[in-house]
């Protein structure tokens, strides 16, 4: 009798561990080991050091400017960001890691730039920033820097899925005179060379980034326009929703990767 119980218990233990091993094997097969790489890992050690040193990373100049804007009272309402949100180190932690998102009362997603502009026009009653203006980028850099080290965490909002589908469709669609899609370079040929440069996997972990080629800070939108121009495709208009859709897809694709804004890129 005792032997029988023992056999059953043994079977249960084996069965459970077998099932566990199976499910682990499956989840590993399903997603594969994480082979995603941030552009940071493809840079040389000199640039990595530049990004890591807060007094050598030129993006930190913009963070400094952004921190001044954070507490500057503007607009008809005479309010500063800090008047509503308080200390950015706590209130803005993780915010950049989950945008784009649909703000309350709206029906379409906005990126960080759009969210800041909503605050400006609605709460501060000030004019929205010009696209990619230095003040807008500085404030974005300041907000994004509060999420450094946080995992990218896109929201579960079901209304976003159709946007992500649209973003993926753009990502996989061939376009432009060179007839290339984003996926051809950044999925199929990532890690290989384009001229002397390593093709990155295009994970938006560090935006806004300080790009040495730009000699300044730039948004993900600017990067996307740069790529579209590179494949000789027609650029979407500056404020087009296609950019937000692409951004949503890219953030979903980079889910769980570590935020490193403001990053330095060659």
């Amino acid at each position: 009798m005792r032997a029988r119980y023992f056999a059953i218990a043994l079977f249960l233990v084996f069965g459970a561990s077998f099932a566990l091993a199976q499910s682990q094997g499956q989840s590993q097969r399903g997603s594969g080991a994480d082979t995603r790489r941030s552009g940071y890992q493809d840079m040389g050690p000199a640039l990595q050091q530049m990004q890591d040193d807060d007094t050598a990373n030129p993006g930190m100049l913009f963070v400094q400017q952004g921190s001044k804007l954070w507490s500057a009272r503007v607009g008809v309402a005479g309010k500063a960001c800090a008047d509503c949100h308080g200390d950015a180190a706590t209130s803005m932690k993780g915010v950049a890691a989950r945008y784009p998102a649909i703000p309350p009362g709206a029906d379409r997603p906005v990126d960080l730039e759009g969210r800041i502009d909503l605050c400006r026009t609605e709460r501060q009653q000030a004019p929205a920033f010009a696209h990619d203006s230095q003040d807008s980028l500085a404030l974005q850099a300041f907000v994004a820097a509060q999420s450094r080290g946080q995992p990218i965490a896109p929201p579960d909002d079901p209304r976003l899925s159709s946007w992500r589908v649209q973003g993926e469709e753009i990502y996989r669609r061939r376009q432009g005179q060179l007839n290339l899609s984003c996926a051809i370079c950044h999925d199929e040929n990532a890690g290989k060379k384009l001229a002397g440069v390593t093709i990155p996997q295009a994970h938006p972990t560090g935006y806004p980034v300080y790009r040495l080629e730009w000699q300044g800070l730039g948004s993900l939108r600017r990067r996307l326009r740069n790529c579209l121009f590179g494949i000789r495709a027609e650029l979407y208009p500056v404020g087009a929703p296609e950019y937000v859709a692409l951004e949503l897809y890219l953030m979903e694709r980079a889910k769980g990767m570590t935020m490193e804004a403001p990053a330095v890129r060659p």
Partner: peptide, 28 residues
Amino acid sequence: ANILVNAPKTAKRGAVIEIKALIMHQME
């Protein structure tokens, strides 16, 4: 202007210290 300076606050007499300075300036 936005300036970032990295210099030690204290140093031993005779020590060689490194001073790093970064300034925001839109060049033309």
